[in-house]
Design a protein around this nucleic acid. Structure first.
Lengths: 189, 189
DNA sequence: ACACAAAACTAACGATTGTTAGTTAGAATT
DNA sequence: AATTCTAACTAACAATCGTTAGTTTTGTGT
């Protein structure tokens, strides 16, 4: 756990603080104090506060993007693709949780090319998701609701999963996947 | 005493800036500049930055709490209660949208009694929602999924509705309610 | 034991933060 | 006409921000 370079430790501690209070409410001195050092010492390992944010967010963003690419390459039905996307979100929540809060809450504090790249990736991701839903409606696998309502409902749930997973984190991942797929696809009644 | 139009203007402008950048990324000088005045002049109308946040959040929080109380007082089935809660969320999103972003993103920056009161209200709200779901499962109106998964899925969707509602032009509220109830209760397949 | 690099330190910088004090121009009230 | 009230202003405060410079400690290989 604590193994790894000092830089990874710093990124880890920063992710915890960012998750609690948000990027702008965390100072470099806060991060340093949590590591038992002085703020100036952080700059032996990182270039600045912005690098911490970008490191956290972009890693997760690339994970989502490559996951979507994998799904799109497969020849499966829209429903099967959506099931895979749900599983990808759960896997990322479990295995790449560090940057997830920053991605959700603090992406707008990215700067320059990172901000541009992130927004492009997010828009592309949503567009692909929307197209899958539309294809499912067209083939009558999915009920003819407004695609936007379905997209937003699923993404809202999947994106905030990290908040709940660690709070009630005793759930087995496979059970969680099964229940999530069932609730999101088939409803509750 | 006298709630000037000016104070409401300040709260309104602050809500817009908080929604864009978050509480800590907005300075009093930012708010003042957006109003065409100087930061010090704001203090003729408000006691400080914290009051802006508390005003925005607590108004919406009370709205949710009283909505839940109304639902609980009625003698209706769990499913009917959930339908009413969905409608309440949509109504608040449409009619009290100012503080919704602050409530979702910046509640942790509340201080003292406001923070305590907010957390208590939120926990109470979730507990009541959870009990309704459990009652629905017990009476076999709701499928026997893990109540936590159902609760989190519905609340995630309803809480982030405001993000999506204003992005995709204002849909007719009644159509939105119908589609939301359908998707959340009956799924999409 | 010595040299060297990694990583900590102290001190300080200019900028910005929320906020207070004191002042002023104009409107309303007397 | 004199007074009070309202709401803006300028100026400044102590605190904190991210960051840089220069120095000292620490650990490692020779």
């Amino acid at each position: 756990m604590k193994t790894g370079t000092r830089k990874q430790e710093i990124v880890h501690v920063a992710s915890q603080l960012f998750k609690e209070k948000g990027y702008n409410a965390v100072s470099m001195r806060d991060i340093a104090k949590a590591l038992g050092m002085k703020a100036a010492s952080l700059y032996n390992h990182i270039s600045g506060k912005q690098e911490l944010l970008a490191t956290l967010i972009m890693e997760v963003a690339y994970e989502f993007t490559s996951g979507m690419e994998t799904v799109l390459q497969q020849q499966s039905s829209p429903i099967q693709k959506i099931e895979q996307l749900i599983e990808i979100h759960i896997d990322i929540t479990v295995n790449f949780s560090e940057g997830l809060a920053a991605l959700n809450n603090d992406w707008m504090h990215l700067e320059n090319e990172d901000l541009k790249a992130f927004v492009a990736m997010r828009e592309s991701y949503e567009a692909n998701f929307r197209d899958i839903i539309k294809a499912g409606i067209a083939s009558e696998e999915i009920k003819p609701r407004h695609p936007e309502v379905i997209l937003f409902s699923m993404l809202s749930t999947l994106r905030t999963l990290h908040l709940w997973y660690e709070k009630r984190g005793k759930l087995d991942v496979n059970i969680l996947k099964k229940d999530m797929v069932a609730v999101l696809l088939k409803g509750i009644v």
